[in-house]
Design a protein around this nucleic acid. Structure first.
Length: 594
RNA sequence: GGUUCCGUAGCUCAGUUGGAUAGAGCAACAGCCUUCUAAGCUGUGGGUCAUUGGUUCGAAUCCAAUCGGGAUCACCA
């Protein structure tokens, strides 16, 4: 079913065409806004664009259109034209029809588009260190966007490309060989990914020391960086790995398995999961055949030294290397190969990559090359680019130890949720286990909401002080409204299947709540269209806010009449249903009691 | 330097297919719990929408220039 705003556009276009057939007004030409609170009405049609063409003054035009709308649709009642704005009110009696037909699933899925096969790639960790704050934004976005697209009627698969090979992995391995003395995550009671990450740090410390020593002995810095024994050993290990040397493979497998067991715990805590995981160790050779094909097609060209390039200068980009002179592939070659591979396996309409905006150029190039090569599905490649997460002090820098660890952050949020719950004296009636669950719901929810509430495209500042705030524009605020509703409905004896009869003489808070509720499917559709979960955050907060106003002003227990009581119970119930629905899509749990 | 993104209240952010007096949250201040959960509600103060010019009935939104900031332009991934 169409939203009221959309229906009003249709009806207004019909009114224009009935009254002024020559103007040929189309639905898309009509701008419908919410009426500003200081004016009477619910939705507003902007008349200016038509005033000139029709050579009418705004007041006369507004009256004509307004009268036509009210006479031909019992959905609209009052209208008034103020300075070129035609304000239309929705008839109170219309709302009973709306309430009786309320069906969230139906409303959400009734979009007109044909379902698409969509893959969302996100998370994409390296196996040499634990996840950090930036990964959290990535994961939350990936999960939310996959949920939103699936809910709005698409077939979505989630995938993760694990960067499990390369020189950075070898660094951890070398350091463990040198300094580990056979230690394991078990023997040191350390989470596997953190354990391996510690050796990555140890590598860098040792490397720095070796370089310093060489320089002290008179070597040039640039040369020292190449000649440091630990670096040479690492490079040799990479060669051995590519050759499949058994003891290197064994160590690699062991250390990666430690990391994966650590990641599993983190993913479980933050609610990330994947339908398919690609490992770079399996995919890094992909794309080589496509380089050959590209050469044959003349899409690529070879320089005298044997390296292979593509010239993208006509597309406003640069020349880009796709194969080194030694015949090995580069990063983008694998990505081309993997794009083709995904397409073969899943036959996608859309392939979404949730990757930071520092790779905007890379993905522009990737898509262009795939298109030029004629890789199937190339047009469906979409880089869901998100901005970096920065701290109030600036960027996170591993050198300066300012990287915020994901596990630490989650644990801290859960701890603070507990602390604040206890401080507020709200622990009564919960078992220990229930409390632990509640703290996770609040702590993790707050973190997710904090990272999702900002437009993904924009870089954001993560202020630790602000992120732990459980007031205002937060998940906690919304969760609290939900918990109140659950309690309220139980206490006032709400029975789910009754029919609403009376929506006459709606009070302002009741009507405002209805209007916002009615906008949910449209908001969700917009969030899907723009790949923007923050639109849902904003909406759901607004809904909870309006519910709280309604809650203060419209008592259910002491309603003026049984009809009002039922109406308000239904309004509260629907609020809770929408909150559950949207928060679920955002990956945020809502408690029934808090 | 080339390309590209950004600049809105003290802080964090909405608002941009051009529409009414630019909105929230936090922070500050003043009220509201004998009544359905006060993690709440109500109110007050707070703005040269970076600057300048242009387009037009109308610009935070579009265009140009300037200032300030980020990203990127690797035979790294």
């Amino acid at each position: 079913m169409k939203s009221i705003a959309a229906q009003l556009k249709t009806d207004a276009a019909a009114a224009f065409n009935a009254l002024y057939p020559d103007a040929q007004v189309k639905e898309q030409d009509i701008l419908v806004n919410e009426t500003k609170p200081e004016f009477k009405g619910d939705y507003t049609i902007v008349l200016f664009p038509f005033v000139k063409a029709l050579r009418l003054n705004p007041a006369a035009l507004g009256d004509a259109i307004g009268n036509y709308l009210v006479q031909n649709n019992d959905r609209y009642t009052h209208h008034e034209t103020v300075a070129g704005f035609l304000n239309i009110a929705i008839n109170d009696t219309y709302w009973s029809q709306y309430l009786n037909q309320f069906n969230l699933d139906l409303a959400v899925k009734s979009g007109e588009h044909t379902p698409k096969k969509i893959m969302v790639e996100y998370s994409s960790p390296n196996t040499n260190k634990p996840l950090h704050l930036g990964h959290l934004r990535n994961n939350f976005l990936g999960v939310a966007i996959a949920n939103i697209l699936a809910e709005t009627g698409n077939e979505v698969s989630k995938t993760c490309v694990v960067n499990d090979r390369g020189v950075h992995i070898c660094k951890s391995m070398i350091a463990w060989q040198m300094f580990g003395n056979g230690a394991t995550p078990e023997s040191t009671s350390t989470k596997g990914d953190h354990f391996v990450g510690e050796y990555y740090v140890k590598f860098n410390d040792a490397y720095k020391a070796e370089v310093a020593e060489l320089v002290a002995n008179g070597m040039e810095a640039a040369k020292a960086e190449q000649e440091a024994p630990i670096m040479k050993a690492t490079q040799q290990m990479l060669v051995d790995w590519e050759a499949g040397k058994p003891e290197v493979m064994a160590l690699w497998n062991t250390m990666n398995s430690w990391v994966y067991s650590g990641f599993d715990i983190t993913y479980k805590a933050i609610g990330s999961s994947f339908d398919k995981t690609y490992y770079e160790s399996n995919t890094y050779l992909l794309g080589k055949d496509l380089v050959e094909a590209g050469l044959a097609k003349g899409v690529f060209y070879q320089k005298e030294d044997g390296s292979v390039w593509i010239d993208l200068t006509e597309d406003g980009l640069d020349e880009k290397l796709v194969r080194r002179k030694d015949g090995t592939s580069v990063y983008i070659t694998q990505d081309i190969g993997l794009a083709a591979e995904k397409q073969k396996e899943f036959n996608l309409d859309e392939s979404i990559y949730v990757v930071g905006d520092e790779q905007n150029y890379h993905f522009k190039v990737l898509k262009l090359i795939c298109q030029k090569l004629g890789v199937p599905g190339a047009d469906g490649i979409f880089h869901l680019s998100y901005g970096m997460v920065e701290l109030p002090s600036g960027k996170m820098k591993s050198r300066e130890g300012t990287v915020v660890d994901a596990d630490d952050l989650v644990a801290e949020m859960v701890r603070l949720a507990g602390e604040q719950t206890e401080a507020a004296g709200k622990t009564e009636g919960f078992s220990e286990a229930e409390l632990q669950q509640l703290y996770e719901t609040i702590g993790v929810g707050a973190l997710k909401f904090y990272l999702l509430r900002v437009d993904p495209k924009k870089k954001m500042i993560f202020d630790p002080k602000e992120s732990i705030d459980l007031h205002g524009f937060t998940a906690t605020f919304i969760q609290y409204a939900h918990a109140r509703i659950c309690s309220l409905l139980t206490k006032t004896g709400y029975v789910n299947n009754e029919i609403v009869i009376d929506t006459k003489d709606l009070l302002e808070p009741e009507k405002q709540l209805l209007i916002i509720q009615e906008q949910y499917p449209g908001t969700l559709a917009q969030a899907a269209l723009e790949y923007n979960p923050s639109a849902l955050c904003n909406y759901t907060f607004k809904l909870a806010q309006q519910f709280n106003t309604f809650f203060e002003q419209c008592s259910i227990a002491k309603a003026e009449s049984p009809e009002k009581k039922l109406l308000r119970q239904v309004l509260a119930d629907h609020t809770a249903k929408i909150i559950r629905h949207s928060m679920n899509l955002l990956g945020i749990k809502v408690p029934n009691k808090m």
